[in-house]
Amino acid sequence: MNDLGNISEIIAGMAAQLGEQLARVGISHPAMVGIHTGGVWIAKHLHRQLNIEEPLGSLDISFYRDDFTRIGMNPVVQPSQLPFSIDERHIILVDDVLHTGRTIRAALNELFDYGRPASIMLATLIERGGRELPIQANVVGRHVELSPGEHIKLSGPDPLALEIQKTA
């Protein structure tokens, strides 16, 4: 349905890139954390394909957003679950779309409230322009050029599908 390519293939490509990068820096036992909701869907696939031992963690960054007093609270905040110690751990953070960078800023703050990781890598299914913070992904599935009025939305978890929406 989309010209972005097959999502399974994109994810497989991300897993391969992650594997290479981890090998290059000598990280053998990373832990993975997905950001609710789309990031967790992608992370589930990457987690399995990379055979990561630690169970997958998930973050809901609603309590760490910087626009809380402007847009209010998300009524359904999933509790964050990190079923392992963050301290001295190499973390792979996974999200669906990297856009302004504000979600990642919030996720980094939240991760540090759980402990002091050894390192954090960022993997994202889609990267688009429009960064408002100095944040870059280590692994990108697809780079997409979108105009400011356009949004890309991942639906899922089964099947995963990408859709470009125009806001009026």
């Binding site: 309590f63 963050i86 703050n109 409230d113 759980y114």
Partner: peptide
């Protein structure tokens, strides 16, 4: 969390 705080 080890830091029992959120910045809301």
């Amino acid at each position: 969390q080890s830091v029992k705080k959120v910045p809301l």
